[in-house]
Nucleic acid binder design. Structure first.
Lengths: 144, 144
DNA sequence: TCCAATCATAGGTGTCTCCCCATCATTGGT
DNA sequence: ACCAATGATGGGGAGACACCTATGATTGGA
């Protein structure tokens, strides 16, 4: 007796919300085991993909409040995953860069994320996963 | 300069999380205009689909804490969308049922949800939406 | 040289969401 | 008649999240 109301399951919006929440929750849970949160992963990924950033640029890119970036970077620095350095060209700015440890941690997180993915996408075969990923990719840009 | 790190976009888990959060947020926003939250809609849908419930059964079905059901039903009752009545066979139980107003409100919510869906699924054609819905449906049962 | 804008930072707020507990009425079984 | 279990209810707590403000350092342009 744990059926979900069919009129909700008929809504793709509801399914997206539900599946998304589960994905988010599971990933967050795994990250928590390593003492990290989702934003930490996002920042590490941004640093890895685009190189060192001024904190301000991280905030813009990730659509996160600058004051929250400070906290995330604080924690990444405390864990030895990122380093801060004053930008000598503009000494207001602080340039954040990945340490080798941070790069290694990110690689671990990627493995973790793929394991979570394996759990969630279990019922789908390789082709179906690809289709799902493609469809979601096309939705993603619209979101603000 | 608002690009999202490619290594995140490559993760279906991340896309699900992101798109799901957006879907959730938009739907919640619309419901808020009508003074309701997502749980209100879920309860209304459960009552409409399965008929009157004891509060305890609502809690079980929707996987929500019984004490939270009380609050949601409080608000639905205050809005005139649901009614409480003691179960005469077991007077500990309170049976919750939809009022005509509640049924009408749910119909409105369904329209709202479909409008949100239209926004989110904009880039996809009818067939693609169907495929997405089907894939998500198959993921949904595994989630606990 | 001076001022407004930019940046990092510290600290706090409001909202949600989920969860736990104590209480009280009622029940079913002993 | 009595007791353990069940159900509704009120209350409150922990944590995540997004957002907002004030302060001090630094910059670039007037």
């Amino acid at each position: 007796m744990e059926e979900i109301p069919p009129s909700l399951l008929a809504l793709t919006t509801y399914l997206l919300s539900r599946v998304g929440k589960s994905a988010r929750g599971r990933l967050a849970g795994r990250l928590a085991e390593q003492g990290l949160k989702l934003w930490h992963m996002a920042v590490l990924a941004a640093l890895a993909d685009f190189g060192p950033h001024a904190q301000r640029d991280l905030a813009t890119r990730l659509t996160i409040d600058p004051s929250d970036v400070v906290k995330v970077v604080d924690e990444l620095a405390a864990a030895g995953y990122a380093e801060r350095a004053r930008d000598q060209a503009d000494r207001r700015r602080v340039v954040v860069s990945l340490t080798p440890g941070g790069r290694a941690a990110l690689a671990d997180l990627d493995v973790t994320a793929r394991a979570v993915q394996e759990e969630i996408l279990g019922p789908l075969d390789a082709h179906e996963r690809e289709v799902l990923h493609d469809l979601l990719s096309r939705l993603q840009p619209r979101l603000g």
